[in-house]
């Protein structure tokens, strides 16, 4: 028996369960979705080959363009906010002494099911009795109908999503902070570097790779946003906050598997392109930092 084959036989028992699961529940479904997207498949009509017809139809529909814009914009706005907020949380955690308790408390939003988080924000931003409008009126502003316009609904989604996921970013950044040698800061202090300079020249470069990984995980998640939109805005008003996931789901729900499949494949392509772009864009500074 050749050596490589012997090696393969030795690792196969360890890899087999994972490969089986991924094959069944990741690879096979993806192939199925791709196949679906090339068929016209709607209720009461026979399924037939459609070539790129589904793609042509969906790419020229305004619903799709609107949804794509929303999804990209949502990711572009919320992920940077989450990273900045994550830094604030992580630096705070690293600086205070009662960190065990603070850590648990700061993580609370992340521990909440998105469905619940959505409902919670619904209650907080209720026009009549939400805490947000209460504060606004207390300070002399007009109450705001937070789901009234697409822009406001968008803002609400960004706020709710950042609130929910900044702790995830914070935990990853905090872990990176704990690995920075204390002596670096002491040396910098001796050399007369202030708080800002120490952050810019020590903390930031040394945690940038972690921030990048967190940003990548978050971007892929944000592009696929579903639960929060589903609960909080139902994709409205006027379809202004319908994410690509929700759009695909709606097509599936109406029994149009071909179009739903096409939207799904396009969403996958977008997620793939964005992460590829991020990796390219951020490789240079990340490698310099390591």
């Amino acid at each position: 028996m050749s050596r490589p084959r012997k090696y393969l036989l030795r690792v196969l028992p360890y890899l087999f369960p994972l490969l089986l699961l991924l094959g069944l529940f990741a690879a096979l479904p993806v192939l199925g979705t791709i196949e679906n997207s090339f068929f016209r498949d709607i209720p009461f009509l026979p399924r037939h080959w459609a070539g790129f017809e589904n793609y042509r139809a969906i790419l020229s529909s305004s619903d799709f363009r609107k949804s794509l814009c929303f999804t990209l914009l949502f990711t572009a706005v919320s992920v940077p906010i989450e990273i900045v907020l994550g830094y604030v949380y992580a630096l705070t955690l690293n600086a205070v002494s009662r960190r065990r308790l603070l850590q648990a408390v700061l993580l609370l939003p992340w521990a909440l099911p998105l469905v619940v988080a959505g409902r919670l924000w619904q209650l907080d931003t209720d026009y009549h009795s939400g805490i947000l409008n209460l504060l606004l009126t207390r300070f002399g502003f007009e109450p705001v109908n937070w789901l009234g316009t697409p822009a406001r609904a968008f803002t609400l989604l960004v706020v709710a999503d950042s609130w929910k996921t900044a702790p995830f970013v914070a935990i990853i950044l905090y872990a990176a902070l704990t690995t920075i040698p204390q002596s670096l800061y002491e040396q910098a202090s001796v050399d007369g570097a202030g708080l800002l300079r120490r952050f810019l020249f020590i903390t930031l470069p040394l945690t940038l790779p972690s921030a990048f990984v967190a940003g990548l995980f978050r971007s892929v998640d944000a592009l696929r946003i579903f639960d929060l939109v589903f609960v909080l805005t139902h994709g409205g008003p006027g379809g202004g906050t319908t994410s690509l996931s929700l759009l695909a789901y709606r097509y599936y729900l109406s029994g149009d598997f071909g179009t739903g499949g096409a939207v799904s494949v396009l969403l996958f392509a977008v997620a793939f392109l964005v992460s590829l772009l991020l990796v390219r864009l951020l490789r240079a500074p990340t490698e310099a930092a390591v």
Partner: peptide, 20 residues
């Protein structure tokens, strides 16, 4: 290859997994 499967949105595989 395994890492690339991370990009697959759950909603994409939902219907085929359901059928499976």
């Amino acid at each position: 290859l395994l890492l690339a499967t991370m990009m697959i949105p759950g909603q994409v595989t939902m219907i085929p997994v359901f059928i499976l």
